[in-house]
């Protein structure tokens, strides 16, 4: 691996029916780093994140994960996705399975763990996020905050090397945002590599190692949070921060 770079996006472009949403983005994510991506809605930040695990296939450029070009058509993307956990805005838990099954189906079917192994680790994780007592509940019985915490530990069950968060708190009632951010904060403390698209500026300032500003499909500025928020250079970033802070 070149240095300790886990993901390298190289000139990533994406168009939807002729409209270019990403106009050539370069970004490197190092192991153990927390990168927060912010930007106005429609800036392409979610699209970019979804390109990282190829949920959106870029129309141009390359994504390297551990030095493997995963945009190459001959690469088995399913294998690489196992190592890239993803958390969605709308949780996307499987409603026909209980919480434990939501968490164990991946490890059992893909990592070939036994039911005992998978359940043991799942229960450990549930314990950590304080939801062990809901192991046999169904997603419809949980609050939004609980669902999102489950979605996070479901992804962790696969023992990923990086976690991608796509606006994880945007669909939550305000009083539930805190509990989800707390889980993410703990994760960052354990040096999990994280790429987070969010509108939570407080979280970005406090947890991020690096903050990235995307606007109109272009990476406008990236910096450590103190510099980024304290001394922004880009004019668009200045006006964006002026509006949201």
């Amino acid at each position: 691996m070149s240095g300790n770079i886990l993901i390298r996006a190289e000139n990533v472009r994406k168009s939807f029916s002729g409209k270019e949403v990403l106009k050539g983005i370069d970004l490197e994510i190092r192991k153990g780093e927390v990168v927060v991506i912010i930007g106005p809605s429609g800036s392409g930040k979610s699209t970019f994140l979804r390109c990282l695990n190829l949920l959106e296939v870029p129309t141009g450029g390359h994504i390297y994960f551990k030095d493997v070009d995963i945009t190459d058509k001959n690469v088995d993307i399913d294998l690489h996705r196992q190592k890239m956990g993803m958390v969605f805005q709308h949780f996307n838990l499987f409603p026909h399975m209980d919480i434990l099954r939501n968490m164990t189906i991946g490890p059992e079917k893909l990592l070939k763990q036994t039911a005992e192994e998978a359940e043991k680790y799942a229960m450990e994780l549930l314990e950590r996020v304080g939801l062990a007592d809901r192991a046999h509940a169904y997603p419809s019985q949980l609050s939004g905050g609980q669902k999102q915490r489950i979605a996070i530990v479901r992804a962790l069950c696969m023992r990923p090397e990086v976690m991608l968060f796509d606006e994880p708190t945007s669909a939550l009632d305000p009083e539930m945002v805190g509990e989800v951010l707390q889980v993410m904060r703990d994760l960052a403390r354990e040096r999990m590599t994280m790429v987070v698209v969010t509108h939570e500026m407080g979280f970005a300032r406090e947890v991020a190692d690096r903050v990235v500003f995307l606007d109109e499909g272009i990476l406008m500025e990236q910096n450590a949070p103190e510099e980024f928020f304290g001394n922004p250079c880009n004019e668009r970033l200045k006006s964006f921060l002026g509006k949201v802070l």
Binding site: M84, M86, F88, F94, R154, A155, M158
Partner: peptide
């Protein structure tokens, strides 16, 4: 079925 279900499945690594 919501498209998010397919995305969640694929993001875990299922084909």
């Amino acid at each position: 079925i919501d498209i998010g279900q397919m995305e969640a499945g694929r993001s875990i690594g299922f084909s």
